[in-house]
């Protein structure tokens, strides 16, 4: 198939960017979306133009490195990561607009690659259990009811790709934050630091310039791991508890 690509090009973080149009021909429907961009880059290189920079690593949907805004939808038309999107989801003649994640907390590094280190800093603020190596009790010391363990797992499947922020009209990272809060709040190991964790992580979330949640649900709709909205409820509940007991 033949497509028209409109791609955001920006030489570096401080330069201005623009949308550039590239026609691309003979795209196989078996290609993944990123392989299609690989092919474009090979062609650009042959023509002496600099290839389009974009992030990807595992290309099997788990590392969270890839992420493009494709025709206005984070990760494109399928509910999966950009690397797992295939060209059979498009038709001949389509115009495909490709943009980087847009959020003040995710500054553009170049073209389609953005800096998501804000997520690491949110984790720094308390997204862990404070246990030194060697200080652990036996793994069977505290049983965890299966439903809590399962919910913790569901929340912990977040791959930190940032699609939730990219899709959110408010540029909020609440789904990412809620997933981590829920993961640790459901487990006995996470209880000791539960309320300081939520205060500090929410505080850092705001410092990074992310917006507030308005419970619209765009984040869950594009989340490749389908993290549910109810993790944000847990985040809110823990925050309410933390605020109430502090006041």
């Amino acid at each position: 198939m033949n497509l028209t690509l409109k791609i955001w090009r920006q030489p570096n973080g401080s330069a201005a960017g623009e949308m550039v149009t590239y026609p691309i021909t003979d795209v196989s429907e078996d290609m993944s979306f990123l392989e299609m961009l690989d092919v474009l880059n090979e062609r650009l290189t042959a023509e002496g133009q600099e290839p389009v920079a974009f992030d990807s690593d595992c290309r099997e949907g788990i590392c969270g490195m890839c992420g493009l805004m494709i025709n206005g939808v984070a990760h494109g038309p399928e509910v999966t990561t950009t690397c797992q999107l295939h060209m059979r989801s498009f038709s001949d003649g389509d115009v495909v607009t490709i943009e980087p994640w847009r959020a003040s907390g995710f500054p553009v590094l170049r073209d389609l690659a953005v800096d998501r280190s804000a997520f690491d800093r949110i984790i720094d603020a308390g997204g862990y259990v404070s246990v030194n190596t060697g200080a652990a009790p036996d793994a069977h010391a505290s049983p965890v009811p299966k439903e809590n363990a399962d919910r913790a797992f569901d929340a912990a499947t977040c791959i930190s790709c940032g699609a939730c922020v990219a899709a959110c009209p408010n540029g909020s990272a609440s789904l990412f934050l809620g997933a981590k809060i829920t993961h640790l709040a459901e487990l006995p190991q996470g209880q000791a630091e539960r309320y300081t964790r939520v205060l500090n992580m929410v505080h850092q979330h705001d410092l990074e310039g992310f917006g507030g949640c308005t419970n619209i649900g765009e984040c869950t709709a594009v989340c490749p791991k389908e993290i549910p909205q109810d993790v944000i409820a847990t985040l809110n509940k823990d925050m309410r508890h933390a605020l109430w007991h502090r006041v």
Partner: peptide
């Protein structure tokens, strides 16, 4: 032991054990 203490959500049985 270490991973469980960190909050790694390993699969569990209904009794709550790994």
């Amino acid at each position: 032991d270490q991973c469980v203490a960190q909050g790694v959500p390993f699969a569990r049985e209904y009794g709550g054990l790994l």
